[in-house]
Design a protein around this nucleic acid. Structure first.
Lengths: 252, 252
DNA sequence: CGCGAGCTTGATGCCGATCAATGCATGTGG
DNA sequence: CCACATGCATTGATCGGCATCAAGCTCGCG
């Protein structure tokens, strides 16, 4: 929906390169992002590779299905969704990415991107030319290792979503989604008890395999049950343990 | 179920190492497996790394959740499923692997396996010590590249399953499953029109987010519609295009 | 102020889950 | 070789969770 609109409005994706360099070594995300565990001199080499950032405004796409693959991207600020779509137009949100997370790994296999990445708020990404990353990770086994870990974790995360989509009911799905979101926010130093959703009910629903009405109803139910306080996109978690129990399938 | 049983019967996973070496360079799967695109001398190095095979009998596990991660595995002969399970015991089949496909990528991220890999028929795998693979792929960019491609394709495949689980109806799911299966068999030189399913209806259902009765009913419906001939696990595809149309969501 | 995108809530219906019984193939022991 | 057990598959009857359809509602914004 929003997709289609942004797809229409600009035939050429707007691209703004920041002229100034940004150093991984001074980035406050270095403990979450690609450079985990690297020495200072290794990080300097990484810095020289990641020369540019790119700004993506809310609603714009970073890349889309079929685009030639050349780089992966690290989210520096902001929030993204990735989505795939089937022949007949149904689409599926495959993930939400926040600061320190990588985008574009899908493109390596075929040299073309296989999903759309859309900014859900004004965002900045670090551009990591993939061939350079491969070159450097042949030099530094720490970087190689970290990159492999990140790809592997993405696979594991996907398996978790498959479990969710394949065998959980609506309440469990939404609870799992919220628990995951708050954990990731907490890892970034935000309060896990108060958050603002960057995505619509429809996008949450797409991710969770539910219709937006079901998402909305389930939010309301959680509010009635005293688990959450919901005001549009503002969520306050009142009973985190209760949410966690729902995920584990302990309804009583 | 079958899981639990095999989990019970042997505290120590049965392990049989083949004493003789097997060469990638002479393997008929080399065009599908890890060595794609490598030169002969590179492949010799790969051969020296992959020193051992392992036999896994039907019903046995190659690895299971929590096992220390040390190697990845290439299926040489046979057929596997991988599955994850939630706290409360529900489990989800995350994939079926056949000859030339890799198992164990899930373990890289945390140094522990995060899913079970179970042989669905008597099988053989090549053991690929992961550190050795990393070492060698720092030397040979072709190997590095190929390995990255394989991981990326796994991510893309998972996204496809998410789309299936999140937005397709039972018939579309089963059709997609069959189309995928026949394509992979075809790539291995088998007839795409006649196949024997290595997995139960329950396992298919788990993979597709359906109950076994629904899988069975849908098979019967496909038979009534003249798309398939179904005799227990023997499937004959009568109308491949019809199946493909179902996947694309062209019901009329 | 009024428009529109997104959210909530209600009424109804359908797809697939669940419960239950039977059928079919394989294997085992008498 | 048959009787029986066992695991898997098929089929029917019923039920329930979520989708669908349809109003209103809220809030941000021109």
């Amino acid at each position: 929906m929003e997709d289609t609109v942004s797809r229409m409005e600009t035939p050429v994706p707007p691209l703004r390169l920041e002229p100034f360099k940004v150093a991984c070594s001074s980035c406050n995300l270095r403990e979450l992002c690609l450079p985990v565990g690297m020495s200072t001199d290794q990080m300097e080499r990484l810095d020289s590779m990641i020369a540019t950032r790119r700004t993506v405004s809310r609603g714009e796409t970073l890349f889309r299905v079929g685009d030639a693959f050349g780089s992966i991207y690290a989210v520096r600020t902001g929030f993204f969704k990735t989505c795939v779509s089937s022949e007949d137009g149904r689409d599926q949100v495959t993930g939400f990415q926040m600061a320190g997370e990588l985008l574009g790994l899908d493109g390596i296999g075929t040299d073309r991107h296989t999903c759309d990445a859309v900014a859900l708020e004004d965002s900045q990404v670090c551009i990591i030319p993939f061939h350079d990353l491969e070159d450097l990770s042949r030099e530094f086994s720490d970087l190689q290792r970290q990159f492999h870990k990140i790809m592997s974790r993405e696979i594991v995360r996907d398996h978790g979503v498959m479990l969710l989509l394949g065998s959980m009911r609506a309440e469990e799905r939404l609870a799992a989604f919220l628990v995951n979101l708050t954990q990731r926010l907490k890892a970034r130093g935000f309060s896990p008890n108060s958050l603002i959703l960057r995505m619509t009910r429809e996008e949450i629903g797409s991710y969770l395999g539910l219709k937006l009405e079901t998402v909305s109803r389930t939010f309301s139910k959680f509010q009635d049950d005293g688990l959450l306080e919901v005001k549009q996109r503002h969520i306050r978690v009142l009973d985190g343990d209760g949410l966690q129990r729902l995920v584990n399938g302990t309804p009583c």
